[in-house]
Design a protein around this nucleic acid. Structure first.
Length: 222
DNA sequence: TGATAGATCGGCT
DNA sequence: GCCGATCTATCAG
């Protein structure tokens, strides 16, 4: 994944993350989603959790691009963000929807539904599809791709992978997340990137800081 | 210390 | 389209 994207301000990084693939390794296998909808949040804007400064919850947003920020909301849902920008500036990109590419049976199990279009077409659903049930991943660093992209891992399959990394990643003790980003398989064209106001907020609701892929059936709504 | 709104979702009318 | 679920962070008093 291009490090430069993750060090850009949220408003620039959010559209650039469209088309990127979000991957999570689990003991059951690999889950892979194409990011099709994002929202930018910046600390100078009241809809952002970082607006009122750093707290225990929002600390990851201030630690610099390339980490995860996970928060719990509405008493029952988790939402996954990619922290972007420079250290000391509180900003992140909310992942609002994804198109399932791999690990679909795992996601069906996590979501307790079968319809592929509804596995990750919303921020709470996306987190649930990935198996996120707490905020333990918040603050963790996106796993550098090289850590997993070895011939040993891919020639041997998931079980070997699990053994090899069990004490580093599946018990939550590592500073790295078992999640990372990969660049788009096909470049995204500028004309396919749509912008709209963000969803579910009341403050700064006029800012067009939600981005999604045009005509993609996996976005949360039109 | 109490009230309330919240980066949501699924079920029901 | 509306509403309840269910918990947390924040703000008022």
């Amino acid at each position: 994944m291009d490090k430069k994207i993750l060090s850009k301000p949220a408003i620039e990084a959010a559209p650039l993350l469209l088309g990127c693939e979000l991957v999570r390794k689990t003991p059951e296998g690999e889950i892979r989603l194409k990011i099709v909808e994002t929202e930018a949040y910046h600390q100078d804007e009241p809809a952002s959790h970082s607006f009122r400064g750093q707290t225990a919850r929002t600390a990851p947003m201030f630690k610099g691009g390339g980490r995860l920020y996970v928060y719990f909301t509405y008493g029952m849902h988790y939402c996954l963000n990619i922290v972007v920008g420079k250290k000391g500036v509180g900003e992140a990109v909310l992942l609002r929807a994804g198109e399932p590419l791999a690990g679909i049976e795992i996601m069906r199990k996590n979501r307790k539904i079968t319809d592929v279009k509804r596995l990750a077409n919303g921020p709470g659903k996306l987190a649930q599809a990935l198996g996120i049930k707490d905020t333990k991943l918040s603050g963790k660093i996106l796993n550098p791709e090289r850590k997993y992209l070895t011939s040993q891992v891919f020639s041997d399959g998931a079980s070997k992978f699990t053994r090899k990394n069990s004490n580093k990643n599946f018990d939550g003790s590592s500073k790295y997340a078992d999640i990372w980003l990969e660049p788009p398989k096909k470049a995204i064209k500028a004309k396919d990137i749509m912008a709209s106001p963000r969803i579910g907020i009341t403050q700064a609701a006029d800012l067009p800081w939600r981005f999604y892929l045009k005509d993609n059936p996996y976005v949360s709504r039109l």
